[in-house]
Design a protein around this nucleic acid. Structure first.
Length: 461
RNA sequence: GGCGCGGUGGCAGAGUGGUUAUGCAGCGGAUUGCAAAUCCGUGUACACCGGUUCGACUCCGGUCCGUGCCUCCA
């Protein structure tokens, strides 16, 4: 059995993964704030974490994968104000859309998908523990985390406290004891959502929800914490301070999460994806023009820690790759699959999720199909299907994928008739007419293939 | 300014101290009336300059370029 290695941001190196409890591997990933559509960068994080969960589920009997929904946040409040739509209706709507869009990318729903608003009491409890242990203080309706009180602060992002102050570009609120202190709880006005607490009616700061929800759903410490690399600081750093501070692990950041996995960013046609450039690619839109499976594999075409350049060419190449693999599966249609993930694929996936190498291994296996004997064919088909299941590809019917199952299409009769006419023309050696018919079919997005068993056709594009 | 990451053949993208993935595109061939699909063959690339070494694309130092975070952000 392959041994999983993961790059652990906490130690800045690739390490053997050893679960705390092999009978229940626990993983958490920071999920979306639901106030608009998810973009392809959100999609990358979801796909990478989904892949991680699938690999772990392959290796261990039980895996609990938790990814949250942030449904209380000032951006949501602002969106509600702007649109006049109630907050609940915004968050419910975009939660559903998020889950639908991710499902299109082959992302399974997490084992637990907690919502921040369902865990307010857990947050309050953690904040109270922090106050009790001297890590937090109330001031003017706020509760703040006192950063100097937590010695190990900076362990994840690798920056010293002095560096943070030097880099601080925000105005320091007067009620802060230290410029680096951050908000755990803040007061709400009457028109803002709020919950009663001993510090008055208010709402949580951004960071507290994750350390409260991980504690509620997974317990401390848990195995793997994942997220986008931009969350390292301050979000993940603050989570560690909150979780460890509340439980007396003063200098032991690994008592929160043992392994930290951070994925790289997506750029679009060599440009940073940003609202101001206007090049934000929404998953919701992309799935209208492309198969979700193509988008998924495109997101996995580079190593997850590398930047990914999202281009039209990338999508096209990925489509070609999948077409080819599905064609191999079509050729093996009558072969009984002997399911087994080949070591070359699993080793690559276990090597810090090296998806390009895993895909190369899979393509190499597929390439052997044509000259394989019957028993090898069974293994090849099984390898494609079972490897594909882990990566999240190749589970469709090949005929359907390639467009051969269009018998139900409304113009099937016309197509068949044209093919018959072409056949007749060919028999009469009237090749000009035969080619003309073929061109006509092509303009109808129909591609024909003359095979030993006669002419077959498929829908393209 | 601080911390970090990266520069690989036309493009995408792994990897390794010495046998130089993989895909797409290209080129040549087989097959085909022509196509399509498939198959076979074909490309010694690793930013620059030094150093270590029997040997470096891979290790060390420097240079240039690009890029992320330090503020909401996947």
């Amino acid at each position: 059995m392959a041994k999983l290695k993961l790059h652990n941001t906490l130690h800045s190196k690739k390490e053997d993964f050893t679960p705390i409890n092999p009978n229940d591997v626990r993983v958490y990933a920071c999920g979306p704030t639901v106030y608009n559509y998810a973009h392809i960068g959100n999609g990358r994080m979801a796909v990478v974490c989904d892949l991680l969960a699938r690999i772990l589920k392959e290796l261990y009997p039980k895996v609990t994968y938790v990814s949250n929904i942030t449904d209380i946040d000032d951006k949501i409040i602002a969106a509600a104000k702007e649109t006049g739509e109630p907050i609940d209706s915004i968050t419910n709507k975009y939660t559903d859309i998020y889950n639908e869009d991710m499902a299109a990318l082959g992302v399974a729903i997490p084992d637990i998908q907690p919502r921040a608003t369902q865990h307010i009491p857990d947050m309050i409890k953690q904040i109270e523990a922090l106050i009790e242990k001297g890590h937090a203080y109330a001031a003017e309706g706020h509760v703040l985390y006192n950063v100097p009180s937590y010695e190990a602060y900076g362990a994840l992002s690798g920056r010293s406290r002095d560096e943070q102050i030097a880099g601080a570009r925000v105005d320091v609120a007067p009620y802060k004891k230290d410029p680096a202190d951050f908000v755990l709880w803040k007061p709400s006005t009457d028109d803002q959502p709020g919950w009663d607490s001993s510090w008055g009616r208010g709402r949580p700061g951004w960071h507290i929800e994750c350390s409260a929800m991980t504690e509620a759903t997974l317990g401390f410490p848990f195995d793997i914490h994942a997220g986008g690399s931009d969350l390292k600081f301050p979000h993940h750093e603050n989570e560690i301070a909150q979780a460890c501070g509340a439980h007396g692990h003063e200098n032991a950041p690994e008592e929160y999460a043992r392994v930290w996995v951070h994925n790289g960013f997506v750029v679009v046609e060599d440009e940073k994806m940003s609202k101001s450039i206007g090049n934000v690619q929404l998953v919701h839109d992309l799935i209208k023009d492309h198969k979700g499976e193509v988008l998924r594999l495109a997101l996995l075409s580079a190593h997850y820690r590398q930047p990914l350049n999202w281009t039209a060419n990338l999508i096209e190449q990925t489509q070609n790759t999948l077409d080819r693999l599905y064609r191999t599966l079509k050729d093996l249609k009558d072969v009984e699959a002997e399911k087994n993930i080949p070591a070359s694929v699993m080793d690559a996936l276990c090597d810090d999720m090296n998806t390009p190498a895993a895909l190369a291994a899979l393509i190499e296996i597929a390439g052997n199909a044509a000259k394989a004997d019957e028993s090898e064919k069974k293994k090849i088909k099984g390898a494609l299907l079972s490897s594909g299941a882990v990566i999240g590809i190749l589970q469709e019917d090949p005929d359907k994928w390639l467009g051969y199952d269009s018998a139900s299409s409304e113009d099937a009769e016309e197509i068949e008739s044209l093919i018959a006419q072409r056949k007749e023309a060919r028999e009469n050696k009237d090749f000009a007419k035969a080619d003309e018919i073929r061109n006509k079919l092509h303009s109808m997005k129909i591609e024909i293939e003359d095979t030993a068993e006669g002419t077959i056709w498929r829908k393209i594009g």
